[in-house]
């Protein structure tokens, strides 16, 4: 029997703007937004918190908050995901403040498929290098971490990153350059302290 009251909408075919407008009072539309952005938000939070458990917890909070505030969402021309990333960024900042600590990223979960070499020695070396890089990254200020994650994990353009971070494309370019310099310095500090530790060990 055909359902005469059913509203047939192909949510997947809708563009972001139409979907957001519908999602204010249509849960199926919100469900489609969830499908489109959940993985991105999770990925971002995962790298900011360093573990899957907190990433899941905060991802859930982001979408519950988005659901309860979407009625008041005003489209100002920026993509919807910019709004979601801003919620995620604020929640992560609160999380860091509440935790009062900065966890070292859990490399075990993803290093296996990102390492290139099969040789055990080279694998260990690559793993150490990645570990060092992630530690250096996590010592950077929040906005710099955010920029690097959006650029490399989400492969966003400077313009898209600018919309999320509320800066111009030029400002993002400049911040990116300074971030790479800072990252290089951080890694050099790590290398020097590693070398000193090894020297101390061999002398002792």
């Amino acid at each position: 029997m055909r359902n005469p009251f059913a509203k047939r909408v192909d949510y997947q075919a809708l563009d972001e703007r139409e979907l957001v407008a519908l999602a204010k009072d249509d849960m199926e539309a919100f469900g489609e937004l969830y499908e489109r952005f959940m993985q991105k938000i999770y990925s971002y939070i995962y790298y900011r918190t360093g573990n899957a458990h907190d990433a899941e917890d905060l991802t859930a909070k982001v979408f519950f908050r988005a659901l309860s505030h979407i009625g008041a969402y005003v489209d100002k021309g920026a993509p919807f995901q910019a709004w979601l990333y801003r919620i995620a960024h604020n929640l992560v900042a609160n999380w860091h403040r509440d935790q009062g600590r900065r966890k070292i990223i859990a490399l075990d979960d993803y290093v296996a498929h990102s390492l290139k070499s099969d040789a055990p020695d080279r694998l260990t070396e690559e793993r150490e290098e990645q570990d060092q890089l992630m530690q250096a990254l996590r010592r950077l200020p929040d906005d710099r971490q955010q920029l690097i994650l959006l650029k490399f994990v989400e492969q966003m353009s400077n313009a898209e990153i600018g919309e999320i971070m509320g800066r111009t494309e030029g400002a993002i370019k400049s911040l990116y350059h300074r971030t790479l310099l800072a990252l290089r310095e951080e890694m050099e500090i790590d290398l020097t302290s590693d070398r000193n530790r090894r020297l101390d060990g061999s002398e002792g």
Binding site: Q39, A52, E56, D109, S114, L133, L137, I148, F152, V153
Partner: peptide
């Protein structure tokens, strides 16, 4: 080298 290292390390994550 740094860009290469970031590209290799930072890959999208998927929740269960």
């Amino acid at each position: 080298n740094i860009i290469q290292a970031l590209q290799t390390s930072l890959v999208p994550q998927e929740p269960s």
